Amino acid sequence: MSQSNVLVLVGSLRAGSVNRQLAETAVSAAPEGAALTIFEGLADVPFYNEDLDVEGASIPAVDALRAAAGNADAFLLVTPEYNGTIPAVLKNAIDWISRPYGAGAVSGKPVAVISASPSGNGAKWANDDTVKAVGIAGGNVLSDSALAVASTFDKFGTSHARENAEVVAQVSKVVADLVDATKTLVNA
């Protein structure tokens, strides 16, 4: 089989966020035959508006997101929790890649969700809401591969997430499951 391409969307725009670190950890945990790419342009994607999403329209940030999503075999969504739910930037990305409904770039492709928070619940509510949104958008969510990382201040302190062996092992398992799911779809 050819290489599996996984697009990573991070719901935090802050460069030093723990969720960004988890995404970077996932990229470094990619097994042989897989490439994970963090999409860097979410801050530039306008809020979804059906008046903008018309045939022939070109919005460079949206075009880049949709092209990256179209080339992906799978998606890894990494989310913090803002006010008990999914951040707007991640929900917006899901909205753009879900269109046209039923034929969007996420439709039928494997998706895994990782969330993290300093709270004891590990952004579980955001994780659940992300699973719900991307599932309704047509993604094939790997519910057995969801990961919620709790108590990040205690777990990481000032260290990068990749320095925590337990978390690296958990993230590596999610990535491996996601890559395996792309192989299963190709062989189906």
Rank of each mutant, 00 (worst) to 15 (best):
V167M: 08
P31T: 02
L147W: 04
A23V: 01
A69L: 05
L7E: 02
P100N: 14
L178I: 00
V54W: 13
P80S: 07
A123M: 12
T182Y: 00
K183N: 05
R20H: 12
N187Y: 03
T25I: 03
F75W: 12
K109L: 10
A105Y: 04
T158H: 13
E81V: 06
N127K: 13
T182V: 01
G102V: 08
S115T: 03
A67D: 11
A35G: 11
V111Y: 00
V131A: 15
A93L: 09
A57W: 10
I114N: 00
V171W: 01
A161D: 00
N121V: 15
P118H: 08
R20L: 08
A15D: 12
Y82C: 11
R66Q: 14
G11F: 05
Y82K: 12
E81R: 11
E32Y: 04
G135L: 07
R14I: 08
P100K: 04
T79C: 07
K109D: 03
A57C: 12
P118I: 04
N19A: 09
E166I: 13
S151V: 09
N187A: 15
N71Y: 05
T79E: 02
A69P: 00
D154V: 08
A30M: 11
P87T: 10
E24L: 09
Q3S: 09
G41W: 10
I114C: 06
S151N: 15
L142T: 00
A26M: 08
T37D: 09
I114R: 02
V27F: 13
N164G: 11
G16A: 14
G120D: 09
A35C: 05
L76W: 02
K155V: 10
G16K: 10
S4G: 06
P46Q: 12
S107A: 15
K173N: 05
A165I: 06
G70V: 04
E50S: 12
T152E: 04
E81Q: 09
G102C: 05
A15P: 14
D144M: 04
L13A: 15
V171R: 02
S115M: 14
L7V: 02
N121M: 14
K132Q: 13
A126D: 03
A112E: 01
N164Q: 15
N121Y: 10
G56D: 14
V54L: 14
A165F: 11
S98V: 11
G157N: 05
V18P: 03
Y48E: 06
L36M: 08
L42N: 03
A169N: 06
